[in-house]
Design a protein around this nucleic acid. Structure first.
Length: 262
DNA sequence: ATGGTAGTAGAACTA
């Protein structure tokens, strides 16, 4: 039986327009089947679409002014595209985009950060996970090939952030958000990074506000690629590519990459 | 304990 590699990555760009040199170089070097981007921070009319399509990439996106925004860059045409998670919302934030590539369903989300645990924004974050759980229940079966990836703004365990003791009340590590995340994962989603790497010190985000954070590896593992059992069985390798975080004009996040033998 | 930087926008917000 002939098998081919399916390569997928996730990257919080923190403005796609500022990060175009990094993204285009990374795509050219790594040639993924799919790249999921979050925090594009651009409304659809201004999305730099041609820079991708000129290089042969397919591009779908949903953005808004200033904040949020998600995209899927791919080698093949995306099928069954979805961009809305809340059926009753009048103006839903641009945090969700899903499509099918071959037999693999891909759901790319930018989960709300949540500000502070006392705030309404934190409740919005918790409810966002709950709505996703409902969506997964309605649309994803455990036996299909599916991936949920993106900036999920949660460090699942104490080895997933540099300083767990001083971040017990942080909106990305508080016990409640971790519980809601685990409930959303349910019996469907497996943290694929932890299938291959059990140790501490592996991060995807290093806050800009302390400029030495990256050099000192004081970071957070808050970007994730989760898969169904079918995808777990096909997983070949998964790694964090730290190189783009050290580039000039870097995002505060970097790329998480996974390869499957399909 | 607080604020530190970066991006969008052209002041204050989000992270």
């Amino acid at each position: 039986m002939e098998s081919t590699v399916f390569k997928i990555a996730t990257f919080n760009a923190n403005s796609i327009r500022m990060r175009m040199p990094i993204i285009l170089k990374w795509l050219d070097q790594h040639r993924p089947d799919v790249l999921a981007i979050q925090e594009t921070k651009v409304q659809d009319a201004d999305f730099p679409q041609e820079a991708f399509t000129q290089q042969g990439w397919k591009v779908i996106f949903r953005g808004q002014k200033s904040y949020n925004g998600v995209s899927l860059i791919s080698r093949s045409d995306p099928q069954k595209i979805e961009t809305l998670l809340f059926p009753d919302s009048v103006q839903e934030e641009a945090r969700f985009i899903a499509a099918t590539f071959g037999k693999i369903r891909v759901v790319n989300t930018y989960i709300p950060q949540g500000f502070q645990i006392e705030s309404e924004k934190y409740q919005f974050k918790l409810n966002y996970f709950r709505r996703l759980q409902e969506y997964f229940h309605q649309t994803i079966s455990r036996t299909q090939c599916a991936l949920w990836l993106g900036d999920l703004n949660v460090a699942p365990t104490e080895i997933d952030l540099y300083d767990p003791l001083h971040n017990q009340n942080h909106v990305c590590f508080h016990s409640e958000v971790r519980q809601v995340f685990e409930k959303t994962k349910g019996s469907t989603w497996i943290d694929l990074f932890r299938e291959k790497e059990k140790g501490p010190g592996h991060y995807t985000f290093w806050d800009y506000r302390q400029p030495m954070n990256f050099e000192l590896n004081r970071g957070w593992r808050i970007d994730h690629i989760l898969g169904t059992e079918s995808m777990r069985q096909l997983l070949k390798s998964i790694w964090i590519d730290k190189e783009p975080r050290s580039a000039a004009k870097a995002s505060d996040h970097t790329f998480l990459v996974a390869e499957f033998l399909i």
